[in-house]
Design a protein around this nucleic acid. Structure first.
Lengths: 206, 206
DNA sequence: TTTTATTGATTGAACGTTCAATAAAAAAAT
DNA sequence: ATTTTTTTATTGAACGTTCAATCAATAAAA
């Protein structure tokens, strides 16, 4: 077997294996043995690369947060300098891009939300992410309305995005991404009503 | 010690102790020993009254769902026959009544949401509850608008309620109940705009 | 030969469940 | 009223299982 450069490969494998294991049996039953099996390595390697199971779980949460950040950033870079509405729409779509990696990622998100209530390290990561979503939304709304209104609009849309995602994930039928996006965009239209010059998407609020 | 009538007392004690333990250390570390300690009884009693730890956890989730149902039902009964807006407002307020039992109940909700992804029994309970919230909202919206619009309005407000609750619970500062209710009612106002005769609450959408 | 990468058996701790033993109240008998 | 019997309620030590972490041994590149 090779001698050098294994670390980034193994780390990536084990993080993916962690999500797969959580998808299969939940965080409670995602043992190091099961995760290692998924990655095709032995259990001992986890402590070697992550210092222990906790380290692996934290790295997995970082990966998920990073993936979300990238999904949003990619869509916003394509805009060059768009209207506030365009930027907010990109943020909405980026947040529902998670559905591509739906099964494993969705269940891992839920598991980490629950865990973060009792692990300061995870709570910190979680809070930074929430604040980023809120701040980005707030900044764009601020371009169209007074600060206090912008804050409430940002809180409303952030709750809408997370709520649609949560209810879709918990539903036995899974998340209907198209419907969730449509409802989130409709909510955005209502929040912008009377505040922007450009009209909404061709379809009115019917 | 007494001889008869202990069962309902112990069941209630142990369910409360379960929520307290989850509040303290999370579901993962809520062992039968810790739960029993909280209730002031021995560990063996859990298997005696609930058949095992799983039975206790399911009973605890049933209790939480029942509490929420009651909080909503109470407020709606006070209305006699109110307007659709009144009923929907009562549903919103009922859902944020959970904050009274905030700490233990909130963390238990989150833990069960995550668990329900992997336990059919819990998922079934969870789904029935979600459907009830959605159906109730849908029925009231239906009195003011066409079915398709009513469904979207119900989905929107349900997501708004859960999203506000989730983000508030995850926040290090805890849930700001007043603000959450205010934003949910503002969302309701926007959903009803142009659909009802009676005006909203004294405060306009500022 | 040196270095890096990996294994897997072992270890100690912690968990849920079980069950024989016990305590106390209620019912029955004296 | 007192004693005996029955029933309900509860304990806590013992058991078997499972887990994360460790580390000496090994294998393969450099």
């Amino acid at each position: 077997m090779p001698k050098t450069g294994m670390e980034p490969i193994r780390r990536s494998q084990l993080i993916q294996a962690t999500m797969a294991a959580i998808d299969e049996v939940g965080l409670a039953d995602a043992t190091v043995l099961r995760i290692a099996r998924h990655a095709g390595v032995s259990a001992g390697i986890i402590s070697h690369y992550f210092g222990g199971k906790d380290g692996l779980l934290e790295a997995t949460m970082r990966q998920i947060l990073s993936d979300l950040g990238q999904a949003v950033a990619e869509r916003r870079l394509r805009l060059a300098d768009g209207s506030p509405r365009d930027h907010i729409a990109a943020i909405i779509d980026g947040n529902f891009d998670r559905s591509q990696i739906s099964g494993p990622a969705a269940k891992t998100w839920l598991a980490f939300w629950a865990s973060s209530m009792h692990r300061p390290q995870l709570q910190r990561l979680q809070h930074v992410n929430d604040q980023r979503l809120y701040s980005n939304l707030c900044f764009q709304f601020r371009r169209l309305m007074p600060l206090n209104e912008a804050r409430d609009a940002a809180r409303t849309l952030a709750a809408m995005i997370d709520g649609l995602w949560l209810r879709g994930t918990l539903s036995p039928d899974g998340l209907d991404t198209e419907r969730a996006r449509r409802l989130a965009h409709a909510c955005l239209d209502k929040l912008l009503a009377g505040h922007d010059t450009s009209a909404a998407s061709p379809k009115e609020t019917a």
